[in-house]
């Protein structure tokens, strides 16, 4: 077996080692890749930045720990921005496996800058996604009687004066699945409430039609989007740190694809020559 044949049937364990190294080494020895801001992320930032203090935003954290690497830094950056702008934040989730996660993230982001119940509240999980979104358009308290800690909504200062989407300045869906589509269809379009989406990189492509149609005010996609938001709020976090690793892993995969294709063409040419003779 020649060199290129061997390359073509490379043991995949070497690939695993290569990927592990490209992820781990930049974490230990940071390169500090420059992060450029895209207009879809800037739009979300600008929208929150221009909200007057005291206005309220709804943040739906529809993900579970599997998407934590991308959506945790994104959630922290967005929430910190809202808290520092003195915008009231109402948190919730449509994913049962993300219930505790939402609570932890809201508290972590609020450390030292916002007070629970006064500046923000976490309502917890509600089942039957689309139906809950539709019902909340009429009356949020019809869906959530209490917050995550069983405190009645009427006793939460952050919820004062909020009945439905008419009292919400922006809905941000930080999602690992397709829930932004439900928020757009059942909250954004019928109730004319602005929607922003923060999604995993793999699903970000699917939201460009909504972005271009003006159905969402902005889009934060994957860890890169989270890193951009961290740069905008000037708080270097996990996403910015992870950018070096992600860059190196992407580069490694691209190089592997190129090598594999060279091997494919060399072997194909060789086989054709053999067939001809």
């Amino acid at each position: 077996m020649g060199f290129w044949e061997k390359i073509g049937s490379f043991d995949r364990r070497y690939i695993f080692i290569l990927i592990a190294l490209t992820v781990i080494v930049p974490l230990l020895i940071p390169i500090g890749m420059p992060i450029t801001i895209t207009k879809e992320v800037k739009s979300v930032y600008d929208y929150i930045d221009e909200l007057p203090p005291g206005s309220a935003i709804l943040v739906s954290m529809d993900f579970d720990p599997a998407a934590l690497a991308e959506l945790y830094p994104m959630s922290i950056a967005v929430l910190k921005h809202a808290y520092t702008k003195k915008v009231r934040v109402i948190g919730m989730t449509l994913w049962i496996t993300g219930t505790s996660l939402g609570d932890i993230i809201m508290r972590e982001a609020a450390e030292g800058i916002a007070e629970q119940d006064k500046d923000y509240t976490y309502l917890g999980f509600v089942p039957s996604g689309a139906m809950a979104i539709m019902r909340m358009g009429e009356d949020i308290t019809a869906v959530f009687k209490t917050d995550y800690n069983q405190k009645p909504i009427s006793q939460i200062p952050a919820m004062r004066g909020i009945k439905n989407y008419k009292d919400i300045s922006l809905i941000i869906d930080l999602a690992a699945g397709s829930t932004p589509e439900a928020w757009i269809a059942y909250a954004g379009s019928p109730h004319k409430v602005p929607i922003a989406a923060g999604v995993t990189a793999v699903s970000a492509v699917g939201y460009y039609p909504y972005l271009n149609a003006g159905q969402i005010v902005g889009l934060i996609g994957g860890m890169k989007g989270a890193a951009e938001y961290e740069k905008l709020v000037q708080a270097r976090g996990r996403a910015s740190i992870g950018m070096d690793s992600q860059s190196m892993a992407h580069l490694a995969i691209i190089l592997l694809i190129i090598i594999a294709n060279i091997s494919y063409f060399v072997v194909r040419r060789k086989n054709r020559r053999v067939e001809e003779t």
Binding site: M33, S247, M248
Partner: peptide
């Protein structure tokens, strides 16, 4: 892949 991470630019 190259452009969606900082290494592209």
């Amino acid at each position: 892949m190259l452009a969606r991470v900082p290494i592209g630019s």
